[in-house]
């Protein structure tokens, strides 16, 4: 299994994405679906981070008197992207949970199979 070690982060990231999709598609409890969305988000974030990851890399800061090769620095752009994506994910999560509370107030259940006020 040694040959996989270079790709371990990618495998983990896509594993999380697939687990999240699986939960979203198959679970009927709304809270579980929201958890699935969160796992999917986490997988995407992990993927973005691993794009810019460098084993034993340093922070990309140039300072006087410190000699660091640019090639040994971690790519900062994916980290900025992930920071933004985490904030967006957190706000979607908050909105989803507050809607869940409202929905429970209206229907008295969180089972999406029972919440079918509208149909195609």
């Amino acid at each position: 299994m040694n040959f996989l070690s270079g790709y371990i982060y990618y495998i983990g990231a896509f594993g999380l994405v697939l687990i999240g999709l699986f939960i979203i598609l198959l679970k009927s409890n709304l809270v579980k679906v929201i958890i699935g969305i969160n796992i999917l988000d986490t997988g995407v974030n992990l993927f973005l981070i691993s794009v810019g990851y460098l084993d034993r890399g340093t922070a990309p800061i140039f300072a006087p008197g410190v000699q660091i090769e640019a090639s040994s620095m971690v790519d900062p752009v994916p980290q900025a992207l992930v920071l933004t994506a985490i904030v967006i994910g957190a706000s979607v999560l908050a909105l989803a949970l507050s809607l869940t509370i409202k929905l429970y107030g209206h229907y008295g259940t969180l089972n999406l199979e029972d919440i079918r006020g509208q149909r195609w």
Binding site: V17, G20, L21, I24, L30, V33, I37, L40, D41, V44, I88, V92, L95, A96, L99, T100, K102, L103, H106, Y107, I115, G117, Q118
Partner: peptide, 17 residues
């Protein structure tokens, strides 16, 4: 409205991911 919004949110978020 709340039901539609939840459905929209689930599908929209997966799309954004």
């Amino acid at each position: 409205g709340v039901e539609a919004s939840v459905k929209y949110l689930i599908q929209g978020t997966v799309g954004s991911s």
